[in-house]
Design a protein around this nucleic acid. Sequence first.
DNA 1: GCCAACGTTGGC
DNA 2: GCCAACGTTGGC
Length: 141
Amino acid sequence: MAYWLMKSEPDVNSYDDVVARGVPEEWHSVRNYTARNNMKAMQLGDEAFFYHSNVGKEIVGIIKVVALAHPDSTAEPNEKGNIVWECVDVLPVKKLPKPVTLETIKKTPELANMALVKLSRLSVGPVTEAEWKLICKMGGL
DNA sequence: GCCAACGTTGGC
DNA sequence: GCCAACGTTGGC
């Protein structure tokens, strides 16, 4: 069981949008190899924080992996006819009663080294168990 | 295989 | 809107 953090721009796809649809959805359109590799490493039942980038800049909820990495339906095949971009499918688990902002994370010594902070451009990154538990607690769970 | 130029992400 | 950080591309 591993923990992750996945970013989405709320203008495009917010946590509430995902909850409202209520069905598993592809985490598509990731076009970065590191982020893709992280998704390929995900196992069924792994959980991830849902982070709102640009607008909000906070962790707002938890989602879980319900389908292993598979070809991204929005990706075009390359010149060899291969689709190199993959994604997992996710479902919402629960909303954080109190969103945890990036500002708070940066101010919390135990969280200041998170991939979210250190690799700010990475849209799908790992979260350690200690980080996970602390953020859940800070989020009111 | 190196590296400069360019593009993109995302915080500020 | 700017810029830092990083990824990608392409010339050599």
